[in-house]
Design a protein around this nucleic acid. Structure first.
Lengths: 221, 221
DNA sequence: CCCCGGTTCCACCCGTGGGTCCAGGCGCTT
DNA sequence: AAGCGCCTGGACCCACGGGTGGAACCGGGG
């Protein structure tokens, strides 16, 4: 994106893992790649931040389970203090909390530990180039999360809802009773009920409960 | 994951784009990589399916906007008929519908057309290895979708809810009125109201509407 | 043994919600 | 000017929801 790929400078990489039996061989084997320079090895998140502060770093290969400062929090702070540093997560766990937490904190890659050396190197290069590489299992999980929560426009909510009706529906979705809705819109409660009856008829909504569901699903609330 | 990476066979790639001015140079330049074999060039989705049926294909580099059969639908059918084929999307557009549609259809990569040759080659290799490469803009969009819809355990729901109360809350979250809940649990409506009053007090819920929200947020419904 | 928590139910009250019908004002196009 | 759609309101009705108090049964633990 912004790299001149003609002469690929060696990538400065930090390896972070609390277990020396993982960290040291990993650092060694990565250094074998001619375009990768392992400039530091960190045993916890704070050591990662120290390494980033000490010298220029392109990519951090980050474990999540670390003492003192875990990988997610370290990723988050790295994004604040050194936004130019790309983070690739390498961990044994791929549960929803870990995946969403790490990616939400700004990680640009997520590999599980059954990834091979070639996979890891590829992810590092991709991260440095502004791409992100995900383990396919991680991608599936991410997509599953998206889809279970957004089953597409299930009931796309008829487009002929008037702006006012949409506004009322939004407030219903936030759990407000009619009186509060009336106050917030500076109209009478009777008018609110009128809008509600109209939009219920249009959208085929029976219940206030169903209205809440639809408002949430369609992103109104 | 299931590849022997020791002797990397040449990857059989299909390039699909309706514009010949994009498709042809792309095919040519990809063929320059020593581990990539462009075995077919397709101008629409049906040609992709035909190529996959004709001979073994490892990766399809797919545009989304194509006549006859668009890229998303082609990806979906490819997943049904030839699940071993990995799809990498390469398109100018990165709107939510396209991204979620393509990835939901089974795409294992998503690049925008400002990606360079190295980026594309890397994505193809990653896809063949079971990883997925996303443009960082695409990843951001995907994450934004996840996070707006999953604000985490906002109000974790007190753990001292009895099983029966949790059961009732679940049904409330599905939008059922008390009578239906009573029928479904083989108890009287009075009992349902008792459970509701108890669990409302415990969880600090005022409304049925709020109950619906909490049930959805906590994954009960 | 008796008490306690969960579950089941009753009766009563009243506020809100959901539905219907109607009507005036306002801005738009025909 | 007439018509239409939207927003605004009022009136009325009845069902459902939410809250209270009381009661009975059952199981397990002090």
């Amino acid at each position: 994106m912004s790299e001149q790929s003609g002469s690929p400078q060696r990538l400065r990489v930090v390896v972070a893992d609390d277990q020396a039996t993982v960290r040291e061989p990993l650092a060694t084997v990565l250094g074998l790649s001619e375009d990768i320079d392992v400039v530091a090895a960190a045993a916890d998140g704070s050591e990662v931040l120290a390494a980033a502060a000490a010298g220029p770093v392109d990519v951090v290969l980050m474990d999540l389970r670390m003492p003192v400062l875990d990988g997610i929090e370290a990723t988050r702070r790295l994004g604040e203090e050194h936004p130019e540093v790309a983070v690739v997560v390498l961990t044994t766990f791929a549960d929803d909390d870990s995946v969403l937490g790490a990616l939400g904190a700004g990680a640009r890659g997520y590999l599980t530990k059954n990834a091979g050396r070639r996979d890891i190197v590829r992810a590092i290069r991709a991260a440095a180039a502004g791409q992100s590489v995900l383990d396919h299992e991680v991608q599936d999980r991410l997509l599953a999360t998206v889809r279970t929560q957004a089953p597409g426009p299930a009931q796309p909510l008829p487009g002929d809802l008037t702006p006012r009706e949409r506004e009322v529906l939004t407030l219903i979705g936030q759990g407000l009773p009619n009186r509060s809705i009336a106050e917030q819109l500076f109209i009478s409660e009777a008018t609110v009920k009128t809008h509600i009856n109209n939009l219920f008829a249009k959208a085929g909504i029976r219940d206030r409960a169903e209205a809440v569901r639809r408002a949430i699903e369609t992103g109104l609330a």
